[in-house]
Amino acid sequence: MRNLRLRSALLVPMWLGSALLGTAAVSGCEAVAAGDDFTQAYDGYLNKCASCHAPGAAGATAGIETTLDFSTADTARASLKTGSAAGLTGNQASCNGVPFVVAGKPEQSLLMAVLDENVRQNLDLASHAGCDGTAATDMTIRVGGADADAIAKVRAWITAGAE
């Protein structure tokens, strides 16, 4: 029983043209309605992360990553783009300081590692050798499962520079 909330698309500024790579050629109205890859991924799936990763989130507990904010697509994008993991403990502690996204390099982005099991199993970060497939957590089980389409959009967003 999945809770697939379908929100209407957010308005997206046209200067995020690179994020529309892969979408069909559109008129101005359609481009604004669809949003870029990140927005679509957020609307379709990543918004679930706010259950735990947002101020006052119902699912927040001790030991959770402390800087992410998935309250809205904008706050999520902002905290992912420039942030790096903090507050992780135990087996995940070696991923503290690892950037959530490395522009253009999804295979080195922690965000991809927690969503995509192939990226996670093959994670190899020169700057943080301890943060590998054993330290990165599968976040998809915490929201009831993975969404291949959304994960593909996240990958596309990062590949395109994560703007």
Partner: peptide, 23 residues
């Protein structure tokens, strides 16, 4: 365990976490 230890916030978060995975 969190509930029993009086860590209500943690307990709430963990319970909620389970509901995200399963009914």
């Amino acid at each position: 365990i969190s509930w029993q230890a009086g860590r209500v916030g943690d307990a709430r978060g963990s319970f909620y976490g389970v509901t995200l995975q399963d009914d």
